[in-house]
Amino acid sequence: MTIKLRYWLAMLILPLMSGCYPKGAEYNEELDIVYTNYNPDFNFSSKTTYALPDSIIKITGDNFLDPDGNGKPEFVSPANTLLIFNQINQNMAANGWTKVPKTSNPDVILLVSTMTTTNLYYYYDWGYWGWWYPGYYPPWGWYYPGYYPPYITGYRSGSVFIQMVDSKAAPGADNVPVEWSAILNGLAEGSDLSSRVQKMIDGAFSQSPYLKH
């Protein structure tokens, strides 16, 4: 066998190798991830009531800009809001929580937001919630007691961000603690998006057993 032929053989092997390289995710659903974190010192089982706003906000940047001057951010469509809230309410009820209006002194408040940017803003401007949050006044805000959500960058990603705020932690204080956070993240496209979001909400609750009563 000549030297030349040996090299041809060697040259042939490499493209053959790349052809059989293993594949990754093929369906949108395979890219879905659910992240949850919580304050280990918070006694979730002693809390039973929660309140939910009537809208889900869109976070469009870490500063709250109000171009139309109505004091409100952009909202998610009513159909998607209903879809997400129904799924959250269902899971909260299954975990032994009771939904009450914000005026009925709820133990915790769930704030739900969405992001379709490449970044997640965990410290987004509190002004986003000024239109709704009870007793809001600047410089109201929140903090993450004992843990920090990760800094994530990506692309074409969409996220639903759920914050469980301890609304009774320190009345009158400037910052309220976010005792539980859930981030549902995936590709923000595809006809199965609704069912994927529902599954991810279920996942967030099932991987957070401490929320159960």
């Binding site: 293993p22 995710a25 991830i33 843990y147 996942g203």
Partner: peptide, 27 residues
């Protein structure tokens, strides 16, 4: 050149108080 590959079905990975669930592709 050896390529090892495995798909891990959806699982919850917990470290401290943080949990992440999803499908993993390992190479």
């Amino acid at each position: 050149w050896h390529t090892f590959y495995e798909r891990q079905d959806k699982k919850v990975y917990t470290e401290g108080t943080a949990s992440v669930s999803g499908i993993q592709y390992r190479y």
